[in-house]
């Protein structure tokens, strides 16, 4: 299978501190990978590099055939093909849910308002908050906000979706409604990179699990093998803590 995301020897520093050390990773079309690891291991930074919210200093990142570098034209093209969902939702508080969703289709894809609203309606229905479309983000619960944020990203009809700890800021009872939407999306054939601690979600949908520690990929295995016989000591320790 052809890989849609390719990272070759990627290195990144924040000042003196090296967050990513020689990362090599390939993700195929329609593949779902889960990235886990302790805090500060560089997993968020890694997926933020994929849509260049962070710039890497060494190595190559190729997304959908386009190499990410200082060329801005490429970046906006990549970003409109790669959707991202954040831990803190980051909905635009001054716009209604519907306007949050139609903003990028109108301004980036130059859709008409009617077309944009049709797209938004379709995805808001998919995440089951179409009844909240006219409300502002501040009027919604955390779970509803995160589903709206997923719909906003989907409205650009991306090939790839990146999730940066999408359930970490939610109340326990709201986690499920967001995960359900993500499972649904995965079953629909979306290419997904998910940073999460939800191991249940990983077991259910992931093709591969990647474990990171101190800026390196420590273990990378198909899901079954990852949970059943991890090799690395650090992975075993992490799994034993997170699963119990």
């Amino acid at each position: 299978m052809q890989s849609i995301i390719e990272l070759k020897n990627v290195n990144k520093w924040f000042g003196e501190f090296q967050v990513l050390k020689d990362i090599n990773l390939q993700v195929s079309q329609k593949e779902k990978i889960v990235i886990c690891g302790p805090s500060g291991s560089g997993k968020s930074t890694l997926i933020r590099c994929i849509n260049r919210l962070e710039e890497h200093q060494k190595g190559d990142i190729i997304v959908d055939g386009i190499t990410l570098d200082a060329n801005t034209k490429n970046i906006e093209k990549i970003r409109s093909e790669v959707g991202m969902v954040f831990q803190q939702f980051n909905l635009f508080p001054h716009l209604t849910i519907l306007d949050n969703c139609t903003l990028a289709p109108i301004w980036v894809k130059k859709k008409t308002k009617k077309e944009a609203e049709e797209i938004a309606t379709k995805y808001l229905e998919k995440v089951q908050i179409i009844d909240q479309a006219k409300k502002f983000p501040g009027q919604l619960s955390g779970g509803q906000q995160q589903r709206a944020a997923i719909a906003r990203a989907l409205c650009m009809e991306p090939n790839i979706m990146l999730f940066d700890e999408p359930t970490s800021a939610l109340d326990p009872e709201m986690i499920k409604e967001v995960l359900d939407v993500m499972v649904d999306l995965a079953n629909g054939g979306m290419t997904m990179c998910v940073v999460t601690h939800e191991m249940g979600f990983a077991k259910e949908v992931a093709d591969r699990v990647i474990f990171m520690d101190e800026g390196k990929i420590v273990e990378e295995k198909p899901t079954q093998q990852f949970f059943n016989n991890p090799e690395n000591e650090r992975t075993k320790l992490f799994l034993s803590q997170i699963l119990n």
Binding site: E76, S80, V82, N90, F92, L103, A104, V108, C155, M156
Partner: peptide
């Protein structure tokens, strides 16, 4: 919030 600009950038706005 920095997240606002990041979210806007992530959906492709210039």
């Amino acid at each position: 919030d920095k997240g606002q600009k990041e979210a806007a950038a992530s959906i492709g706005l210039s």
